[in-house]
Write a protein that binds this DNA or RNA. Sequence first.
DNA 1: ACATCATATATCCACTTGGTTATATAACTG
DNA 2: CAGTTATATAACCAAGTGGATATATGATGT
Lengths: 123, 123
Amino acid sequence: MSLDSTFAALADPTRRAILARLSLGEASVNELAEPFSMSQPAISKHIKVLEHAGLISRGRDAQRRPCRLEPKALDEANQWLEHHRAIFEARFQRLDGLLEEMKAERAKRKPAPTKSTSKGARK
Amino acid sequence: MSLDSTFAALADPTRRAILARLSLGEASVNELAEPFSMSQPAISKHIKVLEHAGLISRGRDAQRRPCRLEPKALDEANQWLEHHRAIFEARFQRLDGLLEEMKAERAKRKPAPTKSTSKGARK
DNA sequence: ACATCATATATCCACTTGGTTATATAACTG
DNA sequence: CAGTTATATAACCAAGTGGATATATGATGT
């Protein structure tokens, strides 16, 4: 439910593969386990992690407990990432601008820095 | 560098806070540590995780090792999420459509299901 | 009631993680 | 040089993770 558990759930390649598989449609535990060289209980654990993170939910079809995607949790994570990606990008632009400014400034007052007297140059 | 390490790095609230702080500009380790009730080595560890994930990089300013954002890694994570969010959404739409269809289908051949004979209804 | 299939739970293990305190290193300052 | 400041490393610990195997539970079909 939280960003913590969502990102943690996404940090495992097996779980991301399970999500990818589920994007093709509902699947039972055994169906999900089949492509992996891993025991069924291991997959059940991964499923529990995904369910706990709110990324999937489960139904009932006779003995099967089919898993389906639950887009909401992914959406929240995506919002955080998208928001911060934008901010980071903006920060980068501004930083580039600043570096340009500083370079120009330095070039003006010290046209040919010979580097031999550069001991106290920084700060 | 990998999605694994990126998502894992993002799964911790302290680290997300550090990233948020860095979106306001470069900061030294001590500056980053200040808002948290946590030891400096603990913060250094978090920083190492972020650096390992490629989310930040470090410079040198006298004794300080200022941290700055590195948008690329976040961008990759964002791409994965955005891509799959779209797929999930599409899947959801299709599912809704299918449910509609099935409901309509069932309504046609059994206009008034009284539920008392519903034992073998599913599959 | 019983055998079977699908899934869950229990236990165990090696490894990782997030934190601590104490100490070492690195860069500057007088 | 000695002292100070910023950061990193080491050693340790409790708790969590990802895997295994063995077993229990739950639902169905006969």
